[in-house]
Amino acid sequence: MEPVVGDAGTGARGVNESSAVEGVSTDGMTPVSAADVIRAHALTKIFDAAGSRTVALEDADLAVRAGEFVSLIGPSGCGKTTLLRLVADLEAPTSGELEVTGRSAADARLARAYGYVFQSPVLYDWRTVQGNVMLPLEIMGFDRAERRRRAFDLLAMVGLGDFANRYPWQLSGGMQQRVSIARALAFDPKLLLMDEPFGALDEITREALNLELLRIWAATRKTILFVTHSISEAVFLSTRIVVMTARPGKIERVIDVDLPQPRGAETREYPRFFELEREVRESLRGTH
């Protein structure tokens, strides 16, 4: 695992190691800023199953500030999803420290601090689109009028206002994923955890949804932790990109994305966009 040796000109501008790990010192001693939504230190997850021991994530340090859009990118098995699931308290860490919105991950989950979007839409077949968006609200005890209002607003926001009464199977894959996002936003969590939400979609739909996600992000000012396989998606969406290595899963490098906001289709044409893409690609290549 050699450090990335990139082009000096672009490397100096594109990579800001100190800002990437700001708030989390390498020795874990530095206190974090109050604005940190996620703070992980020396986070390790080991799966022990029937004689095989897999180190899914080793010694990960990460800080995500409020309002950031942080992408996790890396090869298969690098622990991106594990990290996301640890943050969501869907798995318990083997060791290390993890705080989510200033609490332990479990408390954060119980406080319904985040919304989670999976790679597949995971819509409930027996509920209409609106019913799916309202499901978390039902569980969390929102009253009926509020549930309807929020579902209406959110579906309008993701452009599915006319599909409220359809069943999931009647929607396309992209539409289903937008319902899934609307559902994650339904109870207005501060943090959005997205696990390759557009991974199963075609390129055209994916780019359209990328734009839409940026719009939603800008409109809601959520903090987003986003797992992706796609370099261009990571560069296009993120404020920071966390490059991870596989076996054991480790954070290799954090790259600041200094593309101007708001971003649009033309962003993909900027020379800086390509530079950053190359930056990320080289970081990834360096991890092999």
Binding site: A88, D89, R109, A111, R112, Y116, S120, V122, F187
Partner: peptide, 15 residues
Amino acid sequence: VDPLALDLMRSYAAT
């Protein structure tokens, strides 16, 4: 039930 659907319910801290 899809395990992810159960994960989702867990993320809602559902009873």
